[in-house]
Design a protein around this nucleic acid. Structure first.
Lengths: 221, 221
DNA sequence: TTTTGTGAACTAGTTCACAGCT
DNA sequence: AGCTGTGAACTAGTTCACAAAA
């Protein structure tokens, strides 16, 4: 019997918190598999990685009945299911917008390649960078060729690492080039049309949240 | 009358979501001030930046009565209050652990300096890097000198940008050196003792969440 | 009149606890 | 017996709506 027999309606909402946790579970499973563990209960998984067992079960049950009562989850099986749910069973092509320090670091970041992402292009507006490549060999194209290159290379995901003031115009270009999912590292509010997914990582907000802790909570903790 | 007359008990919890938003509000106020706006209502702020007016008011009211009924908030005043609440009224010293691509990019990231963070040191274990400096001049020290340098330089915040396998040992060293707030860019679960604040930015989870969108939601959206 | 500050209502997310399968 | 999958209970977070202040 097929364990993916429970299918969500395509429009049923999945919380982003849930999908983020699926990534975490997948990483845990990698480690367990590497340690030779064949099956794992939600309880054991929770204890080992500081999570809640019921939450793991709920998150997983949302996508199918992957567990076996009395046994737990088969590590290899669950891994395969999670990779499929997260869309990691096909290679995803990524372009980095902005070939500055951060852009180049992201383009060469080994963690992205590891899970099947392929960084195939960087884009910049500066003549001194265009035509060059990152250390690991990702070519830097003229931002004006974005649409052309994006189509040719079938870019799935754009990563924005440009200064704040050019973030929205660059984002608009990426969207116009047909890219439907964007990871943004620029600070500030950006707008995308419906049907395009924007996820932002705000480095300043992260640091300031630590500053807040030190100023308020840390003093008398 | 002092507008900070309402004081939270030191132990009263503040949601991280709230403190993150305070950073966002502060950034909005920078922009408004630059545009010459002197007062702003929660309604106008909400509309301009895509937020909810009641939420802005609640977040702010949590720390004091900063607004004036019938008028709104004085941009300059509120900015000052937020900077003080977020602990940005003093310079905070930051050290980056790991002088690889990502570490160097973070050390030179202009956004950190802008809000008063001062990146004063990088640490690495590789002889070829120790003694060198980042492009913008941040010196790279031997990780074994962490404790000494951290004390001498009064490091407030550590930023971890080392490979996954060394993340926990490096984190332990940072904690042992007396640093109470850490921003982590390594993937995986890390543990810190109580009294130390760890905030993690997981680049792989972020990308995988976009992959999920493309695999599940994007197709038929 | 305008707009804050805030209790009340609502919505989302987490955890509990147990029926039911293996 | 052991563990999943899940309704019910609970907790956290958001939005509404309005009294009170300027």
């Amino acid at each position: 019997m097929n364990s993916s027999n429970k299918r969500r309606a395509a429009s049923e909402p999945v919380s982003e918190l849930t999908t983020n946790r699926l990534s975490v579970y997948l990483r845990c499973l990698h480690q367990l598999e590497a340690s030779g563990v064949e099956t794992i209960s939600s309880q054991a998984l929770a204890e080992q990685f500081g999570l809640n067992a019921a939450q793991i079960r709920k998150d997983l049950a949302y996508f199918g009945e992957f567990g076996v009562r009395g046994v737990g989850y088969y590590v290899k099986d669950l891994k395969r299911h999670l990779r499929q749910i997260l869309g990691l069973d096909r290679k995803l092509k990524v372009a980095v917008l902005g070939a500055g320090n951060l852009g180049q670091a992201l383009a060469d970041y080994p963690g992205f390649r590891r899970e099947g992402f392929e960084i195939v292009a960087m884009f910049d507006a500066s003549d001194t960078k265009i035509g060059d490549a990152s250390r690991s060999g990702v070519p830097i194209y003229d931002i004006r060729d974005l649409r052309k290159v994006a189509r040719r290379e079938h870019i799935d995901i754009g990563v924005i690492a440009v200064p704040a003031e050019s973030a929205q115009p660059v984002l608009d270009m990426v969207v116009a080039a047909g890219v439907k999912a964007i990871l943004n590292f620029s600070p500030g509010t950006l707008r995308v049309p419906p049907g395009v997914k924007l996820k932002s990582v705000d480095l300043t907000v992260s640091l300031e949240s630590l500053s807040f802790y030190l100023a308020q909570g840390g003093e008398d903790g």
